[in-house]
Simulated assay, not measured.
Amino acid sequence: MTRPGPRPGRPRTITRERIADAGIAMGLPSLTFVGIAALLGVSHMALYKHVANLAALKLLVAEEIFVRWEMPAAGDDGLDAYLVRFSASLRTLVKAHPGLAPYLLRRKATPPAMLARIDAHHEHVAHAYALPKARARWLLSTVALHCVALADTVYAQAGDEWDGEEAGIEAEFDLGMRALIVGALALPIAWP
């Protein structure tokens, strides 16, 4: 299938949202300037006027994926049940967007907008479950770290070649995350 190149005349508007949409469609591991430009119907040189380099392009797309993610809201189901829902949602996010994990795990790779959203989430959970913010931060970060790392490993390696194993792996994943959550909640750590 050949993609149409840039058309003569006035170029299409290049916006952050359109760049992110194209990047999400292409996928973080496959992202290229030429590919994104083709999806936008512009030249790759025009794209360079909006994004400095490939690293910045990937960061823009990763940030937009995270911003669009609907984090589960805390509810009346108890902290342990919430952490299970949170890990399931996070697993789905990582599974749907290969290549996202480094932006979620490495603080230096995480842009300020993502860090601000994470901090607001910590505050939300602390308030909802009457926890010190430091404890909410630790619980959510612990669950997120293990969930993202495991999901990235499991889904990146498996690709589309599950051969009927997906249900078993999903069940083991859920069981492992529940065990982590139960253990984390039971740790006798004094919080300020």
Rank of each mutant, 00 (worst) to 15 (best):
S87K: 06
A88Q: 14
A88G: 13
A88P: 05
A88T: 13
A88V: 10
A88M: 10
S89L: 02
S89M: 02
S89W: 00
S89Q: 11
L90I: 04
R91N: 07
T92V: 09
T92A: 14
L93K: 14
L93W: 09
V94L: 00
V94D: 01
K95S: 08
K95D: 09
A96F: 06
A96C: 09
A96V: 05
A96N: 13
H97F: 07
H97S: 05
P98Q: 07
P98N: 05
G99I: 12
G99H: 12
G99R: 12
L100F: 04
L100S: 07
A101D: 01
P102F: 03
P102R: 03
P102G: 06
Y103T: 10
Y103P: 10
Y103L: 09
L104H: 13
L104Y: 02
L104K: 14
L105D: 05
L105F: 03
R106I: 15
R106Y: 11
R106V: 15
R106E: 10
R107Q: 10
K108S: 11
K108N: 10
K108R: 14
A109G: 03
A109R: 14
T110K: 09
T110S: 14
T110L: 10
P111A: 06
P111H: 05
P111M: 03
P112A: 04
P112C: 02
A113V: 15
A113Q: 14
A113W: 03
M114E: 02
M114W: 11
M114P: 06
L115M: 07
L115K: 15
L115R: 15
A116E: 07
A116N: 02
A116F: 00
A116H: 01
A116P: 01
R117H: 01
I118S: 11
D119G: 09
D119V: 09
D119N: 13
D119T: 13
D119S: 12
A120N: 09
H121S: 04
H122P: 11
H122D: 10
H122A: 05
H122Q: 13
E123F: 07
E123Q: 14
E123H: 11
H124W: 00
H124M: 00
H124V: 00
H124E: 15
H124S: 01
V125T: 07
V125C: 03
A126E: 06
A126Y: 03
A126C: 08
H127T: 12
H127Y: 04
A128K: 06
A128Q: 02
A128M: 03
Y129K: 04
A130C: 09
L131E: 00
L131H: 04
P132K: 07
P132R: 11
